[in-house]
Structure formats: C-alpha cells, structure tokens
C-alpha cells in the first residue's frame, strides 16, 4: 500500500492515521448529562429493594381484594394492575444482581423501616364489600402517587449514564402507575357521589398520608429535603 493513500485502519506510526473526522462522544446528539448521582451502587440497590417491597405488596393486596369488591369493572380492572405490579416487582428484582446484590428470586424485597411495613399493612386492612373506597384510596391515592414522586426523583438524581438501566426501568413503572391512577380517578368519579362518600375518601387519604410522611415513605428518607437534592450536593462540593 502506498503511504499517500487514505487509510481505513490506523497503523503503528503517527503518519499512519485514518482519514475519519473526530467527534466527541457527547456531540451526536449533544449530551448534557453529568456524571455523579445522589447514590452509589449499594445505595441504589437498597432503593431498588425498597421499591420491590412496595410493588410486591401492592400486587398481593390488590389480589386479596378482587374477591371482596362487588363492583365488576373494578374487579376486572384490578386484574391488569396486579399483573403490572408483578412485572414491575420482577424487573426491579432483575436489576439487583446487576448492582452486586446476589441473585435471589425471593427475599429481595425490603421495607426501609418497620413503620413503612406497618403502613402497608394498614393499607391492606379493609376487607368488607362496602369498603371499596377505603381500599382504593390507600393504593391509588396514597401509595402510588408517592411511588411516582419518589421514582421520578430517583430518575432525576441518579447517575444518568452509569445508572441508566435503573432509570429506564423506573420510567416504565412510572408510566404504568400513571395509567393506574388515571383509571382509579374514573372509578372514584363513579363511586364517590355523596357528601358522606367524599368525606370517607378524604379522611382515608388524610390518615394514610400522615402515616406515610411520618415513616419517611418507601425509602425511609422522604419527603426529599431541598438540601438533599443532587443540585445542592454538587453546589456544596464546588464551593
């Protein structure tokens, strides 16, 4: 090969370069992501285990209620939501060995503290066929909105490049829960009609909401204080 011809592959000398133009890994498309998230590998694994706990128990609680809810479309609507929660829990479990948490199909779920576990138990408490409102409020108006908030915070504050698999997984789960909440909103529109029913819904929301705040939510460290955001941490580091 003559030395003047354009090379397809680099050679050993400095004159033996290829003809291809250089681009940075951030150019196409422009990559504004920054390294360093709020949590390291162990902390992400811990959070994933917390999320799995919430998704697993949502699946079981809804499963327990199907038989004791008299409204047919609520029964059938829950069937799909149960499967969604199972898939979310399963995907979270699949992420764990990738985060150096040994692969064990069961026993990976972890409550952040005993009080969150007690809250989940309180959500599961209503049994009677006339308590559909109390049942649905606990999952769809207290737990799921909280999970969506925490998952979205997690998506924004974890390392956007290194922890991208967690982000993608949480984005899917958030999309599912948003559908669930929209469905429940339609159910409430039909089921909550009288002043008394509105009060039942409100009271249940208040009670469980207070307990949720008191126990620190699904990760035990919620609500997220402003000084704990990744922006604040970065700022603190740079000064």
């Amino acid at each position: 090969m003559s030395s003047g011809a354009p090379r397809k592959y680099p050679g050993y000398g400095s004159s033996e370069r290829t003809q291809y133009a250089p681009y940075s890994a951030f150019d196409i498309p422009a990559d504004l992501r920054e390294l360093h998230g709020r949590w390291d590998v162990e902390a992400v694994a811990q959070r994933v285990r917390n999320y799995r706990y919430a998704e697993e128990w949502s699946m079981r609680i809804l499963g327990g209620w199907v038989a004791t809810i008299p409204e047919l479309p609520v029964k059938t609507g829950l069937g799909k939501i149960i499967w969604d929660c199972a898939q979310s829990a399963d995907a979270l479990g699949e992420r764990l060995p990738e985060l150096r948490f040994a692969r064990r199909p069961t026993g990976v779920a972890l409550s952040p503290n005993p009080d969150f576990a007690k809250l989940v138990e309180a959500i599961s408490e209503p049994e009677d066929p006339d308590l559909t409102i109390e049942k649905l409020v606990g999952i769809f108006e207290v737990l799921f909105p909280h999970l969506v908030e925490v998952y979205e915070h997690n998506i924004r504050h974890t390392d956007a490049i290194a922890d991208a698999p967690s982000i993608e997984l949480l984005e899917n789960i958030v999309a599912r829960h948003r559908r669930h909440m929209a469905w429940a909103e339609e159910v409430f529109d039909r089921l909550v009609d009288t002043a008394e029913e509105r009060e039942r819904r409100e009271q249940r929301r208040r009670e469980l909401g207070a307990r949720l705040r008191a126990c620190g939510g699904v990760t035990g460290d919620w609500p997220i204080e402003p000084e704990n955001t990744v922006e604040a941490v970065r700022k603190e580091k740079s000064t």
């Binding site: 609680i61 499963g63 327990g64 199972a86 199909p105």
Partner: peptide, 24 residues
C-alpha cells in the same frame, strides 16, 4: 388466582408471577 397472591405470600416468586399473569 388473585387470592392465591394474598393467601400464599411466601410461595416461590415464579408461582406468584404465574398467578399474577393469570389475574390479567
């Protein structure tokens, strides 16, 4: 199928997945 999820929380995870799918 749905009750099986509540009644047997300690069953193997794959069993729970099968029951959850059956619910849908």
């Amino acid at each position: 199928a749905a009750r099986s999820l509540w009644d047997f929380p300690d069953a193997p995870w794959e069993f729970q997945m099968n029951m959850a799918r059956q619910c849908w």
